[in-house]
C-alpha cells in the first residue's frame, strides 16, 4: 500500500491526454502500478473492489474493438460501473456538438470519461471544460497514450529496462497516433528510437522529436531490441502514399530475414489489427519473438492502472 501511495503522489493529474506531457517518474509510476495489477487478471475471480462506486463512461466516436473492450474489462476488474457509448459520427451528420454531449454525460456525474475521436485534440477540448477525468483513448493522428504505455510495459517486462534500448518503429508514422505516443514515451524513458518507412509516410521534422529517421527497414531493425510494426491503412494507397500492396510488403513488410539483423532476442510488436502478409509476414506475427498478444494482455493492466491513478489512488479495498 505504501508503494501505491507513493505512485499516487507522483501521478497527480486530472486527465491523461498524451505521453508528451508526462515525466519519466510519472510514466514509471503508471508502469509499476500496471505491473502490480497484472496478477488480478490471473485469478479465478478477476475482480477487486478498488473502484467500487466509481462510474467510467467510454465514449467512442471511432470504431474500436480492442481498446474499448480493454478499457471496459479494466474498469470492471476494479469494480467500477461502466457505460459504453459508441457514436456513429460522420462529419456529414449534424447533431449535438462534442461539448454538449460531454456536458450532458457529465450531468450524470461520471468519474472518468474515456474518449476516442477522429479529431486530434478532442479529448483536450473536453478536459478543459469538464470536472470529470478524461482519458484519451486515441485522438486523430495525435496520441494514443494507453497504447504507448502498454507497449512500454510489454518491453519493460521482457527486457527489464527501457533505458538504452533500441526501438524501431516502422510504417505509416505520419498517420499514426500510436507512433507519436511511443516516440514520446520511449524517448522520455531513455530508449533510442529509429523510425522507418517510405518518405511519404515520414512527416518533415520527425528528427526534432529526438528520433533517427531512415527509409530502409533493414537499417532500422539492425541491432534493434524491439521492432514495432504499424498497421498500414489500406485506403492510403488511393491517397498517393504508396504504390501497390505488393511493393509495400516487399520493401516495408517485416519478414524472417529482417529478424536476423536485429538482436537475437528482439521483440516483435504490432498495435493491431494486423494486415497479415502486408506489413508483417504471418510467420513473424506468430513466431517466438512476437509479443503481439502480450501487448493485448498488458493493455488491460495499463488501463486498470490509469483508471486507478486518475481516481486519486483512492482505495476502497485491497488493490493488489
Amino acid at each position: 500500500m505504501q508503494a501505491d501511495d507513493a505512485r499516487g503522489m507522483i501521478f497527480r493529474r486530472k486527465d491523461l491526454l498524451g505521453l508528451a506531457d508526462l515525466s519519466r517518474e510519472e510514466i514509471q509510476a503508471i508502469l509499476t502500478t500496471a505491473a502490480s495489477f497484472k496478477e488480478i487478471s490471473t485469478r479465478s475471480i478477476k475482480k477487486v473492489p478498488t473502484l467500487r462506486g466509481k462510474t467510467v463512461i467510454t465514449l467512442f466516436y471511432e470504431p474500436s474493438t480492442r481498446t474499448r473492450t480493454s478499457f471496459e474489462i479494466a474498469a470492471k476488474r476494479l469494480s467500477a460501473d461502466t457505460v459504453n457509448l459508441t457514436v456513429a459520427a460522420s462529419s456529414a451528420v449534424k447533431g449535438e456538438t462534442l461539448i454538449d454531449t460531454a456536458k450532458n454525460l457529465e450531468a450524470m456525474a461520471p468519474d472518468i470519461l474515456v474518449i476516442r475521436h477522429a479529431s486530434s485534440g478532442a479529448p483536450h477540448l473536453l478536459a478543459a471544460r469538464l470536472r470529470s477525468s478524461v482519458v484519451n483513448a486515441g485522438d486523430g493522428l495525435h496520441e494514443h497514450p494507453t497504447q504507448g504505455l502498454l507497449d512500454m510495459l510489454t518491453v519493460w517486462e521482457a527486457k527489464g529496462r527501457l533505458d538504452g534500448l533500441k526501438i524501431a518503429i516502422v510504417g505509416d508514422i505520419a498517420h499514426s497516433r500510436v507512433a507519436r505516443s511511443n516516440i514520446h514515451g520511449f524517448r522520455t524513458m531513455g530508449s533510442e528510437v529509429v523510425v522507418a518507412g517510405p518518405q511519404t509516410m515520414l512527416p518533415p521534422y520527425l528528427a526534432d522529436l529526438g528520433v533517427r529517421v531512415t527509409f530502409s527497414l533493414s537499417e532500422a531493425v539492425a541491432d534493434a531490441d524491439v521492432i514495432m510494426m504499424l498497421r498500414l491503412q489500406l485506403e492510403r494507397q488511393g491517397q498517393m502514399f504508396f504504390s501497390t500492396l505488393r511493393e509495400y510488403s516487399r520493401f516495408f513488410g517485416l519478414n524472417p530475414g529482417h529478424l536476423k539483423l536485429a538482436k537475437p532476442d528482439a521483440l516483435v510488436m504490432h498495435p493491431g489489427p494486423l494486415n497479415r502478409g502486408v506489413e508483417i509476414a504471418p510467420e513473424v506475427a506468430d513466431g517466438l519473438q512476437s509479443a503481439i498478444l502480450t501487448q493485448v494482455t498488458n493493455g488491460v493492466a495499463v488501463r486498470m492502472a490509469v483508471l486507478y491513478l486518475l481516481s486519486g489512488g483512492e482505495v476502497s479495498g485491497a488493490a493488489a
Binding site: S120, G140, L141, H142, R180, P203, Y205
Partner: peptide
C-alpha cells in the same frame, strides 16, 4: 501550417 507543431499535435499540415 505543416511543421514541427503540426507533427506534434497530430494535425494535418
Amino acid at each position: 501550417h505543416e511543421g514541427r507543431v503540426s507533427l506534434q499535435l497530430g494535425l494535418r499540415g
